[in-house]
Design a protein around this nucleic acid. Sequence first.
DNA 1: TCTGGGGTCCTAGGACCC
DNA 2: TCTGGGGTCCTAGGACCC
Length: 441
Amino acid sequence: MIALVDVNCFYVSCERVFCPALRGLPVVVLSNNDGCVVARSDEAKALQIGMGQPLFEIRGMVKKHGLKVFSSNYPLYGDMSARAMNILRRFAPSVEVYSVDEAFLDLEDLAFADLTPHALNIRQTVLRWVGLPVCVGVAPTKVLAKIANRIAKKDKLGNGVCVLADNWDAVLQDVEVGDVWCIGRQYANLLRGYGIKTAYDLAHADDTWVRKHLTITGLRIKKELEGEPCIRLETETPDKKSVGTTRSFRDPLRTKDALGKALADFAARCGEKLRRQQSSAALLTAFIHTNRFAKGVPQYGASFTVSFSTPTNSTLQLVKAAQYVLNKIYREGYDYKNAGVLLSGLTPQSNVQISLFDPVSYEKHQRLMVAMDGVNARYGRNTVQVAAQTIGTGAQLTRQTQLSPCYTTKWDDMLVAHVGFARDLYSPYSSVRAELYSKRP
DNA sequence: TCTGGGGTCCTAGGACCC
DNA sequence: TCTGGGGTCCTAGGACCC
């Protein structure tokens, strides 16, 4: 059996851990640029706030309904995620961290007749130890575990746990086909056109037909709905096959100079990501684009890809390549709203074949990058950077007006607990936790 | 006024080889 | 008039996920 553990409205829940007064209130967390909603509390959902809804459409609700709005605080969420995942590893021999707020647990070797108490235990432990509410879905396959989790989440009066051990046909009849994992909008439309409306219908469709229209991936989903495991647990995180850094700008950029700085920042970030997993890239793509939503203004967008004679992860080379691309694709007279750098053709650094005719010394660049990463790790990002980059953090390029403190990852933001007394010093659970927090002066 | 970012997998079709 | 067969590799585009 497989369990899917998923934190309820993860980003919102992270904010609530450190600000308990937010409980019971409508709360949303915004995308990178304070552009649109990416996480909603149940109360916010009840106000009909949609996923991806732009901020300007819901501004009125701040006053009218007491809506609380946060910019996204990725350092905080990343750290909270790591804490939650570490707890989950206590409950299963192997765990797949599927996303920042979800994990699959392999419960196969656990000799419990009824997995419900185990699932409840998982839920209670995560809640007590890191303050995050989770729901647990248990079933024979990943696709069914996803469905079980969804049922647990929808049942607001339930205990946050749903086990589908057998006879799930009736359950599948209540699940719309578009709500099945890996059946997106396009596939759902296609399937409905053929009369396949529910997960049950898909489970009982013809294999060959499914294979033809939904590819091998779709066939696996169908088999999993029948209870036959086809998608394995990925317990170790594979190296990424591509990395990218893209942003929308708070204020559109017009000049080549300004775009050059931004692309240099993005290339440098990509270099860091590459070096973290010890890879090098053979290809670099950079793109720029005007605001696609703006009506009646001239639109332009372009991208171009360059290849390196020897795969690299040197920020110097990546920045240079990004500048080269910009020179090729930049056109004057447009307001650019969006740009990015993407790296592909990644290979492990140890496999890189150095060429005699390389224009730069691979060795020297490697040593320089180690030194640069070392300094930046110790004294903060961008302490040492390439001259082509934006001076400082580049924060002025994006908007983050509602940012909460980095409670767990910055010394200056850490909360101080003023504790006058403690009833049970030896309990791992602190019932007085939240109410005693205050911000460091 | 104002609309995110970062990934994965699969397939068809073209280029190329012998 | 007549024009092979079999294979690999690469890429673009389309679908999906959180």
